[in-house]
Amino acid sequence: MTALYFHVIERNVLAYRRLWGIFLTGFAEPLLYLASIGIGVGALVGTVKGPGGQMVPYDQFVAPGLLAAAAMNGSVFDTTFNFFFKYKYAKTFDAMLATPLGPVDVARGELGWALMRGTIYAAAFLFFMAILGLTSSWWAILCLPAAMLIGFAFAGAGMACTTFMRSFVDFDYVNMALLPLFLFSATFFPLSQYPAGVQWIIRCTPLYQGVALERALAFGELSWTLSINVLYLAAMGLIGLHIAGRRLALLLQP
């Protein structure tokens, strides 16, 4: 028998079969950003200092950043807005918990689904990066598992935060957190643009870990610091998942 949480993923696949149009539009956003900022603004910028210290074309610099951001945005949306709707209004999880599934299965299944969806988007984006000649190393293949790790980290954290939300109004905070992360995690310009003190703050934020990881892999500039990024993201996902499972049990099985 397969693990029980697999059926939670199955449910989402079933529900999404009719919404494939919406599913497809998810591919568009990161590509549009790549075209606008990477190529359009990139033409004004020219070259920029890459992860190895060499000057690299701006579009090559931005693409891995957008890949990391897309992995974050994809998984956060599924584990916050959609997750909240399912648990608070649609009672989807109440139905699941009346079966052999437990709260931890629900949390794992929802996270698995977010991850699956994010992975498909990330794979498509990476494919376009390669076609457009924006990858310069074979290490770039590892950008995909790295995107999954970023997705995992933000899915876990997003889900944990969502269990503390009271109403949709609280999601304004999610938006308020996501956009700054998207814009300021060295996604669009190198860390060196910041004053030294601010650089250290940025280095501590979660999306920066993902951007640093993706960019290093895309350019094949590996170093031991990448293991810190990996550990950070893995811990964030695991802790989030653990909290989400615990909180769900408290919320749905009082």
Binding site: V41, L44, L183, T187, F188, F189, Q193
Partner: peptide, 15 residues
Amino acid sequence: LFLGAIGLGVGGLVK
């Protein structure tokens, strides 16, 4: 936020 990131951040890269 866009002003900061794109206007100042990326703008700083334009020459």
